[in-house]
Design a protein around this nucleic acid. Structure first.
Length: 140
RNA sequence: GGAGGCCGUGCCGGCGCGCGGCGCGCGGGGACGGGAGGAAAGUCCGGACUCCGCAGGGCGGGACGCCCCGUGAAAACGGGGGCUUCUCCGGCCAUACCGGGGAAGACGGCAGUGCCACAGAAAACAAACCGCCCUUCCGGGUCGAACCCGCGAGGGGUAAGGGUGAAAAGGCGGUGUAAGAGACCACCGGGCCGCGCCGUAAGGCGGGCCGCACGGUAAACCCCGUCCGGAGCAAGGUCGAAUAGGAAACGAGAGGCUGCCCGCCUCGUGCCGGGGCGCCGUACGGCGCGGCCGGUGACGUUUCGGGUUGACCGCAAAGAUAAAUGACCGAGCCCGCCUUCGGGCGGGCAACAGAAUCCGGCUUAUGAGCUCCUCAA
RNA sequence: GCGGGCGUAGUUCAACGGUAGAACUCCAGCCUUCCAAGCUGGCCAUACGGGUUCGAUUCCCGUCGCCCGCU
């Protein structure tokens, strides 16, 4: 996959150029929290699947983009793995959020191979999926 | 090698997350404080707490179970002692028994009941298949008898030997006998005793009696003793919103059958349906007026209770509710390789694993190191 | 999170503590020109680890997996 290993801290570690003092905070306002919101995204949203995660999103209704991070109990049996997968997704989204365009409500679903890779790889795939590349699939 | 206990990575930096009180000033942002475990796990026990039930008690069901001491609210845990089983060593003819070392034990019950397949003669108030012994008959050896022989037949004795089995009714030796046998004897073992001594006790030692008549299984039914009402924080409670239906009170009642209650009838009020008139509208239809016809006690307001959804409390010196405790840079430490001895490169800083009401136990998973005890060399 | 139930052939179910069976499936043979049906025979299992017992699918303990209920 990637031949040159990125070095450098979080301040300049992102592969994109979206780090000019971006707001990297991710408070409750920027997350999905109500079951009704989840139902809307799952039923009306578009899905893009990658190797480490699945991205489901639809045009957002709030002032800012909102996201949620999901690790299913079926795919990750142990609680440690669920927490690990969800934290990877959240950290990757947090660092790359500034580089994304549009206002979306999105759900990131972790897939099993995510446990074997570092945050760097998850970020790259998230950026790729959000930009519209990769396989896409319509949902309804 | 075995067993137990302790600890379960630390430092700097900026980027983030959820919580608390503080002050800005109330859309949010700021500094400070604190933020995973010994198992947070499995949910196997016990409690706190909450709701339901309850005069009192029983049945059913369940948990625990040698003795003493200690800790504890209880479950449970720790220490010491006893007994049993297994194993090793020694004694011994001996797998029987005795002595010693080690390990393990869900270790109350000489009240009753059930079960013990197959094999085997017989499996629990024993039993005779082979064998052994005695005897009768038959046949033969002989003319006959004593006596001897028989893959021969019958009757009887016998638990030493064979064989079956997880287990065969005390062990070894001797006396004895037709052959044998606790039939008898010595030693060992066992059972019973309102017996003696020692011990707080479980129990131990001794004495007397019994030739021994009392197999295993209670993680089989059961009996005895102690304890247990049920459910569980998604318990339970508070507040608000929208919607349809329920209960109570009040609002409109009057008259008659009939003096009162109930009931029935008439009129009125309310509601529903159908006509009539007016207005709006292309139409479906809507609003108002009127009180013409039919039906109904059905109506309105308030309060209460139930369901749905949301927020809060319960809830904490970690504490949420799509659920925080993370990712990264650096220094340091360790390992391997190279080295021109200045250093360079690569890898690692772990294992098991992530709190959802809390606490005490049990069980299971697991890394490096430290420490203690015991055994062997 | 809290509570409850169940693990037996490939599947659906049996089995007082005493050799684990049945039906369907699968395989082979017979029958048929061939297939199906039918007939005959065969293969295949007690989730795992301990304990009690002479003996465990059954009794007891632990581990693992699956299913269900409760907002």
């Amino acid at each position: 996959m990637e031949e040159k290993s990125y070095r450098g801290g979080a301040a300049k570690g992102a592969p994109s150029s979206a780090d000019e003092e971006a707001d990297r905070r991710l408070g409750r306002r920027r997350r999905l929290s109500r079951p009704a919101d989840f139902r809307l995204v799952f039923e009306r949203g578009r899905r893009r699947a990658g190797r480490y995660l699945v991205l489901v999103r639809r045009a957002g209704e709030a002032d800012e983009s909102r996201a949620a991070f999901v690790a299913g109990k079926r795919t990750f049996r142990r609680a440690v793995d669920r927490a690990r997968a969800r934290r990877l997704l959240r950290e990757a989204y947090r660092l790359q959020r500034g580089g994304m365009t549009g206002r979306w409500d999105m759900i990131l679903i972790a897939r099993r191979p995510i446990l074997d890779v570092k945050r760097q790889a998850v970020e790259e795939e998230l950026v790729r999926l959000a930009a519209g590349r990769g396989r896409t699939r319509e949902k309804r």
